[in-house]
C-alpha cells in the first residue's frame, strides 16, 4: 500500500509537469483531470472518503468538462 501511494504521488508530479509544459491545450487539460483523479485516490488512502468523493466527482468530472467547453467556444470562434 505504501509503495503504491509513492508511485501515485510520483505519477501526479509527472502529470503536473506535463500539464504545465505541454504546448497542446487539450493535453494539458487532460493532465489536469489525471492529477485530480490521482489526488482522489490519495485522499482515499489518507482515510478521507468524503473528500475523495468530492474530488473525484468535481475535480475529475466537472472541471475537465468546463475546460473542454471553453476550448470548444474558443475553437469555434477561430473558424468563424
Amino acid at each position: 500500500m505504501m509503495i503504491l501511494s509513492y508511485l501515485l504521488i510520483l505519477l501526479m508530479i509527472i502529470g503536473a509537469l506535463a500539464a504545465v509544459l505541454f504546448e497542446n491545450l487539450l493535453n494539458s487539460i487532460i493532465s489536469l483531470g489525471l492529477i485530480s483523479l490521482i489526488a482522489a485516490a490519495l485522499m482515499f488512502i489518507l482515510k478521507a472518503p468524503d473528500v475523495a468523493m468530492t474530488e473525484a466527482i468535481i475535480g475529475a468530472g466537472l472541471t475537465t468538462s468546463i475546460f473542454i467547453f471553453t476550448l470548444i467556444k474558443i475553437n469555434r470562434g477561430d473558424s468563424q
Binding site: 500539464a19 491545450l25 489536469l32 492529477i35 482515510k47 478521507a48 473528500v51
Partner: peptide, 30 residues
C-alpha cells in the same frame, strides 16, 4: 488557459496538503 490550468494544479496541491496534515498512522475514517 494554461494559467488557469496552473491555478487548478495549485488548488489540488493545497487540498492534498491540508488533508495530509490531519492524517494519523493507523487511523480510521472519521
Amino acid at each position: 488557459i494554461k494559467i488557469v490550468v496552473s491555478i487548478g494544479i495549485m488548488d489540488t496541491g493545497v487540498n492534498l496538503l491540508l488533508v495530509s496534515l490531519g492524517y494519523i498512522n493507523g487511523g480510521l475514517a472519521p
